[in-house]
C-alpha cells in the first residue's frame, strides 16, 4: 500500500516502518480470512458479510468521489443494475420487445451473471459518465439522483422482466468449484464471507493499481485544478469516463454479491439510503485514501447492527444522522488522514 508518511522518518526506523507498511495490509487480510475459523459466530459473520458488500460499494464510490471529486448520489443505480443483471441472468427470462419478437435467456451459471453484472453496470457507467460530465457540481449530484430514480421506476414497472414490486425471488446462491467437492452452492456463512472478502480484496487492488497508474495521477491533477490539467493536455472527459466505468463495474459486482446473498431483489434496491450509506462510509474513513472506505465501512457497516436492541428504532436513525453530521463537520477529511497526521506528529 502507499505509505503517506513513509518519507518523513529516517534511518533504520524508516526501513522497519515501511516494511511494516508493506506487510500490514496482508496481515489484516489474513486476520480477516482466519476469523471464521477462530470465532465461528454465525451472527458476526452475517453482519460482516453484509457490511463487506457495502464496503465494496464504498470502495467503488471512492474512485469517483475521492479521486475525481465528483459526488455521485445515484451510485446505488450501478449497485442495483448489477443486482438485477446477475439475478436475471441466473434465473433466465423471456420478454417481448415489440414487433412480435421475443428475447429468451435460459438460466445461466451464477458466475456468468456476476460477469454480466460488471459489464452492464460498467456500460451504464460509461453512458452516465458521458452525459453527466457535461454538467458539474450540484447538477451532477442531482442528475445522478434522478438516474437512480428512473431506474427504480423502470424496475417497478417493467414487470415482464423484473417482476416489478413482486420482486425476483428464489435467486440461486453463489456456486463455486471447491477442491474435492466439485461445483457446490455456497450456503454456509463462512463460505459467503470468504467470497465477499475475496471480491473486496480484488476491488481494492484494482482501485489501487488504477490510482497509482498514469490515469490516477491525471485524475488527482484534475481534482486539484481542472483548468490547469486541461491546459497541459490531460483529456479530462476521457479520464473521468474511465473512472466512472470502473467505479460502476465494481459497484455492479457488489450488487451481484448482494443479489445472490440476500436472494431476493425488488425495486427498493435502488433506495437513496443505500447510496447515503456508501457515501458516509467513504467520507468517514477519508475520501481519496485507499483505506478510507474500508475503515469507514467497518464503522458504518457494523454500528447499526450493534445498536439493534440498545435504542428505540427511531433513535437509532437519529444517532446515525447525528454521527453523519459530526463526522463531516469535525473530521471533514476522514479518520484515515487524521490518524496519518497524528502519527506524523508523534
Amino acid at each position: 500500500m502507499t505509505a503517506p508518511d513513509g518519507r518523513s522518518a529516517e534511518g533504520r526506523g524508516e526501513l522497519n516502518r515501511s516494511r511494516l507498511h508493506h506487510y500490514a495490509p496482508w496481515v489484516f487480510v489474513l486476520v480477516l480470512a482466519l476469523l471464521p475459523l477462530a470465532f465461528p459466530d454465525p451472527y458476526m459473520l452475517a453482519v460482516l458479510t453484509s457490511a463487506g458488500i457495502f464496503i465494496i460499494g464504498a470502495i467503488s464510490l471512492n474512485l469517483l468521489l475521492g479521486y475525481t471529486g465528483q459526488l455521485s448520489l445515484g451510485h446505488v443505480a450501478f449497485f442495483g443494475l448489477g443486482a438485477y443483471t446477475s439475478a436475471l441472468a441466473s434465473l433466465g427470462f423471456d420478454i417481448g420487445i415489440g414487433f412480435g419478437l421475443r428475447i429468451t435467456l435460459q438460466p445461466q451459471p451464477v458466475w456468468l451473471g456476476f460477469i454480466a453484472a460488471i459489464i452492464v453496470a460498467g456500460g451504464f457507467g460509461w453512458l452516465l459518465g458521458r452525459l453527466a460530465f457535461r454538467v458539474r457540481g450540484a447538477y451532477f449530484v442531482i442528475i445522478t439522483i434522478c438516474f437512480a430514480q428512473v431506474l427504480r421506476m423502470v424496475a417497478l414497472n417493467w414487470i415482464e422482466l423484473t417482476q416489478g414490486p413482486m420482486a425476483l425471488i428464489s435467486i440461486p446462491p453463489f456456486s463455486m468449484w471447491l477442491p474435492g467437492q466439485g461445483v457446490v452452492p455456497l450456503y454456509s456463512k463462512a463460505q459467503n464471507y470468504w467470497l465477499v472478502l475475496a471480491v473486496a480484496v480484488l476491488a481494492f487492488i484494482v482501485v489501487r493499481q488504477l490510482v497509482e497508474s498514469r490515469i490516477g495521477r491525471a485524475l488527482v491533477a484534475l481534482r486539484a485544478n481542472e483548468s490547469l490539467a486541461r491546459s497541459v493536455g490531460i483529456r479530462v472527459t476521457h479520464y473521468l469516463v474511465i473512472a466512472a466505468v470502473i467505479s460502476a463495474g465494481i459497484a455492479g459486482a457488489a450488487g451481484s454479491l448482494f443479489a445472490h446473498y440476500i436472494r431476493i431483489i425488488d425495486p427498493d434496491v435502488f433506495l437513496f439510503i443505500y447510496t447515503v450509506t456508501m457515501v458516509i462510509m467513504v467520507i468517514t474513513g477519508g475520501k481519496g485514501t485507499l483505506w478510507g472506505p474500508v475503515v469507514g465501512g467497518l464503522i458504518f457497516g457494523l454500528v447499526p447492527d450493534l445498536l439493534r436492541g440498545h435504542a428505540r428504532p427511531e433513535a437509532q436513525w437519529v444517532l446515525y444522522g447525528v454521527a453523519m453530521i459530526l463526522f463531516v463537520m469535525f473530521l471533514p477529511r476522514g479518520i484515515v488522514p487524521a490518524l496519518a497526521s497524528l502519527r506524523r506528529r508523534a
Binding site: 468521489l65 459526488l71 448520489l73 457540481g137 450540484a138 449530484v141 447515503v276 457515501v279 458516509i280 467520507i283 428505540r312 427511531e314 433513535a315 436513525w317 437519529v318 446515525y320 444522522g321 447525528v322 454521527a323 453523519m324 453530521i325 463531516v328 463537520m329 471533514p332
Partner: peptide, 27 residues
C-alpha cells in the same frame, strides 16, 4: 460553521439533518 466547506460536505450534513428530522418526527 460550514461556510468555508465544499458543496459536497454541506450536502452530506444536510442529508444527516434530514435523517434526524424525519426520524425525530416519527419519534
Amino acid at each position: 460553521r460550514m461556510r468555508k466547506a465544499d458543496i459536497d460536505s454541506v450536502m452530506l450534513v444536510m442529508i444527516g439533518a434530514s435523517l434526524v428530522l424525519q426520524n425525530g418526527e416519527m419519534w
